[in-house]
Each structure stands twice: as structure tokens, then as C-alpha cells.
Write a protein that binds this DNA or RNA. Structure first.
Length: 698
DNA sequence: TTGTCCGAGG
């Protein structure tokens, strides 16, 4: 053998060297027995050349060449040779089946397997794993079972690797009973057998079984390895069981598995699912080797836990480190743009997405719909939504919620009904979206109907978010007692839900109920800043300055401070922030002059300041002055000054817009002939030609 | 010749 291989080596190193026919023949013969002696693709090509030169018509030699090519995954070369064979021998079939499979061409792989059977060639242990993998990938249970039958008839079911492949196939096809049966009938099992069953159980929701098997492994003399650990970590992520997750982390460190990319990604994911972003970032930072998946895991972790800026920072860092973002990277980061309403960044990412050709990905396009809707571009959102092929419930929900936030309740309802007609069942988020739509349009009856029917029609029990939407609906409409009744039926109403009612008490000036509601809030959430501010404002609004002062005093004694009201606007890629009465903007004086001019024009158009919204104990003239210092007006004035005529002005405010500003902005939109879009903390207002899309309802 | 990790909507 050694001398034959010596000839081979010489030949391969110098294909021009003259070899005797005998030598070549011996060489090829040796190779028939040991195709593995060829160690590179170029050697494979040399071999092919020798065959063409000396024995081009031998099916056996051709098959050997196919086998060698397929070992290097060279599908095209294998196919060219395969097609020259009239009746391919077993080796040729086996090689081409495997070669198709390793190239992900599972349909062709299975077709070749069928051909092989039809031609009367008997498959063996070397080919079943590829065939079973193809069945698993194509989710073809019937063919898989047929192959299994064939395996049993040939007595191959005791073969370890074939058995493992069978387990894997049944696990992927979620036929857990077959997984168990195959595992139990196997005469020898290795760690892969165990891991495959464990991973299958974990992914098919049989969490207890998976964990029990991890414990049993020890009895078989096997220790959990990186595969075992990355299979069970997602269980603790799903159960938000950080203690168990940490235990595994300890084990990982003891055995030095923390260098493994898969384990690290699973740990990052586990910690972020358990809301321990700091821990997940720590794991990420000590992971030396990083791939797109570990980056995606940590970025998604930040974004899902509300750390949007950190998520964006990491995303930029990933690009800087020359890690190519995949489609998952974009669908992970896009919600950060939606939440931060950073339209410009969102648009840049959208461009990047299109250049990568990811714009037909339903995850990404749904996140784009959400981002554009939340950034005020509901039409762009609708346009993207219209182009989504194979919309799923999430795409519909993003669009429905977008319409809801913009006050287009009719559109939201018709989308919701259309979605159901297409056979898509709404989940709890979709229900929240439709209730939000009703809430923002004051559609009490429709809202009530969706709420009452959600359990029997969709099998979804009302959760916090649904109660919140309903409480909001009643509250905005002034049905304060209905809201109170509804909230009281909840087993554990939260401070947030009561606060919705409290803010309605302010709008509808119901001080008595406000006091009752406020005490409920302080019971469950004594630190609730918003509620204390609201209560103080309610007193002030009623002229009860003493009580108002008392609430503020309590707040100060408790050491809590409210966040100032502010508005911001993006002009030429820069975000300008305005806080009421803050004079720090470089164009402060110019903005004031512009506001004065606007004020005069507004008064000519019949504007009278509604000073009831000013909750300071000062005279009327002073109140008027305070009103026009409101942050959203200054942001709008700045926007008008610094953008070309006709440009839409987009402003974001961190609290709900006040009645007087709402009236003022309507007039301003008419005076300057611009569309002004204001997003407050609850919805969008589109001001155009003296009207607002909210129809005076917010 | 078999097996692992990440993703959208409130």
C-alpha cells in the first residue's frame, strides 16, 4: 500500500510525470479501497485527470472519482461525472446522495435515493444518515418512516450513527414517541444519542423529560458536554429560571466550556430572557471568539430589555468589528429605532436592509412597519405592509397598532377583520392593538364587544394590557365610573392601570374620584411619581393650591422628583430637545420672536388662551406666558424656522399634549400651511389645515 | 456517517 501511495503522491505533486500504465492501474485500485487518501480538492481533480487519461469508461473508476469529489462537497464536478454513467453503481449513488445532502439540496438527495432503490442497488449505513437528514429537513414524515422501514429490513437499525440520525429526524418531525422507541431499541448509544434525544425533548416542550435525561446520563457513564448544555439552557431561559441557569453557568466554567460559541450564546440569551442584561453583556464581553449569533444575542437582549442605546452602540461596534450583520441582526435592532423614534437611523438601516436583499424577510418588514408607524410615517408603514408577501399575525398586528396609534380606528378594525378572514388567529397582542384602536377613537361599543368576546372567540383570557386598554377607553370617554367598576373586577389591579383613570379624573375634573383612585395607587405603589404629580395637578386645577402643595411636599420628603416635560425634533440629523422655560437653546431668542409673531396671527384667527391648563398659582397674564413657553410649541417654532416651506414638522413629546397647545397647533398648521405631526406619550396627532386627526379625542 | 445558539408586534 505504502509504495502505491508513494506513486500517487509523486503523481499528484507532478501530474506531468510519466507513470507506467501498471503504476496508474495499481494506484487507482488502491484508491478504490481508500478514497480518503486524497486530501484536497486539487488532488481530487488530478485523480480525475488520471482516470480520464487511462480508463475513462470504467464505471468503477468514475464512481471513485465521484466519491472523492463528493468528499470535498464538489457537487458540480460529481454531477458531471454521475451523468456520464448509464447505470450508476452503488458507490456512485451513495456519493451523489451524500453530496446533494451536504450541499443542502435535500429534494435531489431524496430523489437520488429513490432512483437508487429503483435501480436495485442496496443502500447501506453510509447513506442512511444523509437520507434521514433530508427527510428531517423537508419535514417529510411519510418518506422518513418508509426509510426507517427499509433500515429495519436491512437490519441497519442497530447501527449507531443511523440510529442517531433516526432520533434526530423524529425529533425534528416532533414525533416524540418514535424518538423514544428508537433510543430504547438501540443496542449501543453514545453521547450524541443522548444529546439528540435531550435536544429534541427540549425543543418539543418536553422540558421535564429533557432534564431527567440529563440526570440519567451519568448512570450511562456520560457527562454533559457543550451540546447538552446548549440544549437545556433555553429551557431555563423560557422559564425565566435564572437560579438554575446560573447553576449551569457554574458547571460551564468548571469544565472550561465557556470558550464555546454555542454555550456562550445560550448563556447570553438565558440571562437576557431573565432580565439580567448586565450578566449577559458580561458573558458576551469575555467571549473571545464572537460570531454574528453571539452579537445578535447580546443586541437582542439589550433591545428587549429596553436598553435601546446600548443595543445600538453594540450594533455599531459589531459593524466596526467587521462582523457582517444577518437578517436577524436587523430584526433585532429595528425595534430600538421604533422605541426611540429615531427615524433617520431607521431609514439608514432600511437602506442597508435593501442593499443586503433582506427586505422580503417578513420579520424585518414587520419591524419596519412598526418603526415607520411609531416614527409618524404611517403611510410608509402602510406601503411596506402592502408589499409583504406571506404576512403573518405579527405583520398584521404591527399595522393594526400603527393605525391605532394614529387614530385610524376604522382602518384598524377593517385590517383586523381582514386578517381573520385570511384565517389568521389573533393573539393577545393583536387583541391589545384592536382595543387600543377603539380606545383612541372613543369607540366604546366596539371595544366592549372585542373585550367581551376575546375569551370565547379566540381563547384568550384578558390580561393586564387588555384591562388597561379598556380602562383607557372608558376613561377617555369620561365614563369614569365604568372604568372604576372594570378595574375593580381585576384580581390585582396595578398602579399603572389606576393611573389611567386618575389622568381621566384630571381631564374630566372629578376631584372626589381622583382622591379615591390616588389612595388605591399609593396602596400598591407608594413611589408612583406620575400619580402624585397628577393628584397635585388635579388639586391645582380645582384651585385647591394648599392640597396641591401638600402633595408636592410629600414628594419632596420622599425624595422623589418628577421628570420635566420635554419635546424634541430632528432637524438635519440632529435632535433638538426643548424643556419648558429652558433658555439654553442657541436660537432661544429667535424662537421667542417667532412664537410672538405666531401668537399675533393666532389671535387674529380667534385664538384665546385656555389658561385653565396652567397649574401654577399665578395671574392670567403670567399663565399666558407660561403656556406659550410649552416645549412642543417651541420645538414647532424651531422646526418652522429651520426647514424649507412645506416640510412636515415632526415633534415628539414625553407627556400628553395639553388642550391649549392642541388648539394652538391646529391654528399654527393652518397659518404656516404645514402638516405638523406630534407624538405624545400615548398617540399621534396629525395637524393639517386647522384640523387634527384625533378629532379632539385623546 | 449523526447532534447545538440568536430574531418581529403591546
Amino acid at each position: 500500500m505504502a509504495s502505491t501511495l508513494g506513486v500517487l503522491e509523486a503523481l499528484l505533486r507532478n501530474p506531468g510525470a510519466i507513470a507506467t500504465k501498471l503504476e496508474v492501474k495499481q494506484l487507482l485500485k488502491a484508491l478504490l479501497k481508500r478514497p480518503g487518501a486524497i486530501t484536497s480538492a486539487s488532488e481530487a481533480k488530478q485523480l480525475h485527470a488520471q482516470i480520464l487519461k487511462h480508463n475513462p469508461s470504467s464505471p468503477l473508476y468514475t464512481s471513485t472519482a465521484i466519491c472523492v469529489y463528493s468528499n470535498f462537497k464538489l457537487l458540480n464536478q460529481s454531477l458531471l461525472l454521475f451523468k456520464t454513467l448509464q447505470s450508476p453503481p452503488s458507490l456512485a449513488y451513495k456519493s451523489i446522495i451524500k453530496c446533494y445532502a451536504v450541499n443542502g439540496r435535500f429534494v435531489e438527495s431524496l430523489a437520488s435515493f429513490v432512483d437508487m432503490r429503483a435501480s436495485g442497488n442496496t443502500p447501506d449505513h453510509s447513506v442512511f444518515p444523509s437520507v434521514l437528514k433530508a427527510c428531517a429537513f423537508l419535514l417529510d414524515l411519510r418518506l422518513g418512516e418508509a426509510v426507517h422501514g427499509c433500515i429495519i429490513r436491512l437490519g441497519m437499525d442497530v447501527h449507531l450513527i443511523t440510529g442517531n440520525a433516526l432520533i434526530n429526524m423524529y425529533a425534528k418531525l416532533q414525533t416524540d414517541s418514535s424518538v423514544k422507541k428508537v433510543f430504547e431499541t438501540m443496542t449501543t448509544r453514545d453521547i450524541i444519542s443522548w444529546n439528540t434525544v435531550i435536544a429534541g425533548n427540549a425543543q418539543n416542550g418536553l422540558h421535564e423529560d429533557a432534564l431527567a435525561m440529563v440526570r440519567e446520563m451519568g448512570g450511562a457513564g456520560l457527562k454533559p458536554d457543550i451540546f447538552t448544555l446548549s440544549a437545556i439552557l433555553p429551557i431555563f431561559a423560557q422559564y425565566v429560571d435564572v437560579d438554575k441557569g446560573r447553576e449551569i453557568h457554574g458547571y460551564v466554567i468548571r469544565y472550561g466550556f465557556d470558550k464555546d460559541l454555542y454555550v456562550a450564546s445560550s448563556l447570553i440569551n438565558m440571562y437576557s430572557r431573565c432580565a439580567r442584561v448586565e450578566d449577559s453583556i458580561r458573558v458576551f464581553k469575555i467571549t473571545r471568539q464572537r460570531d454574528t449569533i453571539s452579537w445578535n444575542s447580546v443586541i437582542a437582549g439589550c433591545v428587549q430589555n429596553g436598553m435601546f442605546d446600548e443595543g445600538l452602540r453594540l450594533f455599531r461596534q459589531m459593524l466596526k468589528d467587521n462582523v457582517i450583520p444577518g437578517s436577524v441582526s436587523f430584526s433585532s435592532i429595528m425595534p430600538a429605532c421604533a422605541h426611540l423614534t429615531t427615524l433617520n437611523l431607521g431609514k439608514q438601516l432600511h437602506g442597508y436592509i435593501m442593499r443586503c436583499g433582506f427586505d422580503d424577510n417578513v420579520f424585518i418588514s414587520s419591524s419596519l412597519v412598526d418603526m415607520y408607524a411609531k416614527c409618524g410615517h404611517i403611510r410608509t408603514a402602510g406601503w411596506i405592509f402592502g408589499g409583504i408577501k406571506g404576512r403573518d399575525m405579527v405583520s398584521w398586528t404591527a399595522m393594526i397598532m400603527g393605525c391605532a396609534l394614529h387614530g385610524y380606528a376604522e382602518d384598524a378594525i377593517s385590517l383586523f377583520e381582514q386578517m381573520k378572514l385570511e384565517g389568521i388567529r389573533p393573539n393577545h397582542v393583536a387583541i391589545t392593538a384592536i382595543l387600543t384602536a377603539c380606545s383612541h377613537a372613543g369607540m366604546i361599543d366596539e371595544g366592549r364587544r372585542y373585550f367581551d368576546r376575546m375569551t370565547e372567540e379566540y381563547g384568550i383570557r384578558p390580561g393586564l394590557e387588555h384591562y388597561a386598554a379598556m380602562a383607557d377607553l372608558y376613561s377617555r370617554k369620561g365614563k369614569l365610573n365604568d372604568a372604576y367598576q372594570l378595574i375593580s373586577t381585576m384580581t390585582t389591579p396595578t398602579g399603572t392601570i389606576w393611573s389611567l383613570l386618575l389622568s381621566a379624573c384630571r381631564v374630566h375634573k372629578n376631584v372626589d374620584l381622583a382622591e379615591k383612585v390616588a389612595s388605591k395607587i399609593f396602596e400598591v405603589d407608594p413611589e408612583n411619581i406620575g400619580a402624585r404629580v397628577l393628584l397635585s395637578n388635579i388639586y391645582a386645577n380645582d384651585g385647591r393650591w394648599k392640597e396641591a402643595a401638600k402633595v408636592r411636599m410629600t414628594m419632596r420628603n420622599m425624595g422623589i422628583r418628577k421628570n420635566p416635560a420635554c419635546s424634541w425634533i430632528e432637524v438635519k440629523n440632529k435632535i433638538h430637545t426643548f424643556i419648558a422655560d429652558d433658555k439654553s437653546h442657541p436660537l432661544h431668542d429667535e424662537i421667542n420672536i417667532a412664537l410672538c409673531e405666531l401668537q399675533e396671527k393666532m389671535e387674529l384667527a380667534g385664538y384665546v388662551a385656555d389658561t385653565s391648563e396652567v397649574l401654577h398659582d399665578v395671574d392670567d397674564e403670567q399663565k399666558k406666558y407660561l403656556l406659550y413657553g410649552h416645549s412642543e410649541r417651541r420645538a414647532i417654532a424651531f422646526g418652522i424656522m429651520s426647514t424649507p416651506a412645506g416640510t412636515t414638522i415632526r415633534v415628539i413629546k414625553n407627556i400628553r399634549i395639553c388642550v391649549d397647545c392642541h388648539t394652538a397647533i391646529k391654528l399654527i398648521s393652518k397659518i404656516v400651511g404645514r402638516e405638523i405631526v406630534v407624538r405624545d406619550n400615548s398617540r399621534f396627532h396629525h395637524f393639517r389645515d386647522g384640523e387634527c386627526s384625533c378629532g379632539e379625542y385623546w
